[in-house]
Amino acid sequence: MNWNWSHVDDFMPLFWDGVQLTLKALFFGTLIAFSLGLVWAIAQRSERKWIRWPVTAVTEFIRSTPLLVQLFFLFYVVPQWGPSMSPLTTGIVGLGLHYSTYTSEVYRAGIEGVPAGQWEAATAVSLSRRRTWTAVILPQAVRRVIPALGNYVIIMLKESPQMAAIGALDMLGQAQGYSQATFTYEAISVVGVAFIVIAYPASVLLRVLERRLVR
């Protein structure tokens, strides 16, 4: 077995830079995914067909195609007629957009889980449409789906290394850079272990949260 621990030591400073970038992308990607997902979910419940159908079609399409190709699209095609984005920004937008189509399904399930009596009660006390959503439906729906949303944060973490393919220096990007510059191969293992070390406790935590919030 050819293994050299000193390469691992040398990689560590770069690794921590990568961790920072990964967490940054994850944080902003999550913000986009959570907020845009809610927009999709509410739009899909709209009474107007011309809102409901296009949103359903677009989210279905985004959800059924690979994030990697979407990242390439955002990075190479969009700048031809739109804004040019850095690899990190592209990664954040890509992750956020891709997973907003998943979180919209989560929100939808949550909204459908709110008993019909709640809608009727809101109508009975003549709340406006806006107040019905913000004061009655969403507080009940969102509480129920927090664990499921949290699971998507973990999934986004595990998919985030794809942005290394467009040159972002996240954990994987740093490991690739270091390995190619020094002709070594130990760095990837550090990153692989790091993902398990972050993702496993997070999923345990979510299961505890699920037991508390849902029942």
Binding site: K158, M171, A199
Partner: peptide
């Protein structure tokens, strides 16, 4: 389940 498939 905790592993990133790309890194793996």
């Amino acid at each position: 389940r905790s592993t990133s498939s790309l890194v793996f």
